[in-house]
Nucleic acid binder design. Structure first.
Lengths: 192, 192
DNA sequence: GTCGTATATTTTACAGATAAAACACATGCT
DNA sequence: AGCATGTGTTTTATCTGTAAAATATACGAC
């Protein structure tokens, strides 16, 4: 059932207890219900967390694209510029790759593009001529500083569907999950 | 109401200050701290939710790849096969696209590949010759049924870093967020 | 019946990511 | 100095996804 949904019609009157609610009105709940009908012996518990995280991420990223696109930036590009802006100093391509969780090759390409657009500049290291240093241009810094408030305002609007307390609870639980995942999955660098 | 402050774990251990003190050990917290140092006037609250959702999704998907790859499947491929398996009947390419949240073109390509591998079959509709119907072969069904338990076991192991109660709280909060996002997303598209 | 429009699917062109190889250089050993 | 080995970065080949155009077909108005 529920397959071809036109509009999920989330006309949910009351405040949905948010407590161990397996059968809410989101698409993941419908999927889980289908699986349980086909394989009643399986524990579908993890799906309700992981499936929802994935689905939320997909929806939120799609939403985030909106203010970014107005600035002519993709999200990976903004992540790169943002890493330079928030650290406040130059970064090497390798550092940028680690900072933005993407491959070195992807970073190389992005740097090339952003350089052509005049948003970042590169210079070679004087001592070790293998390494390059990338920094924001004035235009790049201004772009980030202009986009970020819009981005945050948009995110705030999106998250306003949650009560403030719920939002904080969610942030806390995700922080716990994330810090343990990051610790478990081969230590990634922590903030200097 | 959500409340359920029962899990003491990830909260800000040091922060007695009213402000959320972003002092946890995950990478997102470090990023947020950097942004606050550079732009103290901005409300970075949304980052702590959205950034963590994105990062969790990235890490979890990477983890999920492991059991799937053993079966020679990518996640989008598994999603397609899973949609056929859990609905229990044939689906058209369009339905599959909606069910797996991907574009029609992507579904076309996946169907072609999976057909070549003997995991799905297509047949034309007798009445409306525009539409096709896709169904699992026996091999496809067996593959899904073989992979799914491994997949769930793996996910259970990954999520075991959370206490059961925390996991349920998280699922509930994500369900609330997701159901509202899915309901509101269309209407929110113009704001900024 | 024929025409215009809507719908379902596929094709095409292209942007973007990754893995693996290639490259350039540094560093340490002898 | 000369060479082996390791590291930082870029290139190459390849793959996947998407947007937009193309294709094929149904349906309704006339």
């Amino acid at each position: 059932m529920t397959a071809t949904n036109g509009t999920p019609a989330a006309g949910d009157a009351s405040g949905t207890s948010a407590r161990r609610e397996a059968s809410t009105a989101d698409t993941v709940a419908a999927v889980v219900r289908q699986w349980r009908a086909v394989h009643p012996e399986l524990d579908t518990g993890p799906m309700e967390v992981i499936g929802r995280i994935n689905r939320c991420a997909a929806l939120l990223q799609q939403a985030e694209d909106a203010p970014l696109r107005r600035a002519g930036l993709s999200r990976p590009e903004f992540d790169l510029l943002g890493a330079l802006r928030r650290t406040g100093h130059e970064l090497t391509p390798g550092e940028l790759a680690r900072e933005t969780f993407s491959s070195g090759a992807a970073v190389t390409k992005r740097i090339k593009q952003l350089t052509e657009r005049g948003l970042v500049e590169r210079r070679g290291d004087t001592r070790d001529r293998r390494v390059a240093h990338v920094r924001l241009t004035d235009a790049g810094r201004d772009l980030v500083d202009g986009v970020l408030p819009e981005q945050l305002a948009y995110e705030t609007a999106v998250l306003s569907v949650l009560a403030p307390a719920g939002r904080d609870d969610l942030a806390g639980l995700l922080a716990e999950l994330l810090s343990r995942l990051e610790g478990r999955m081969g230590a990634l660098r922590a903030g200097g």
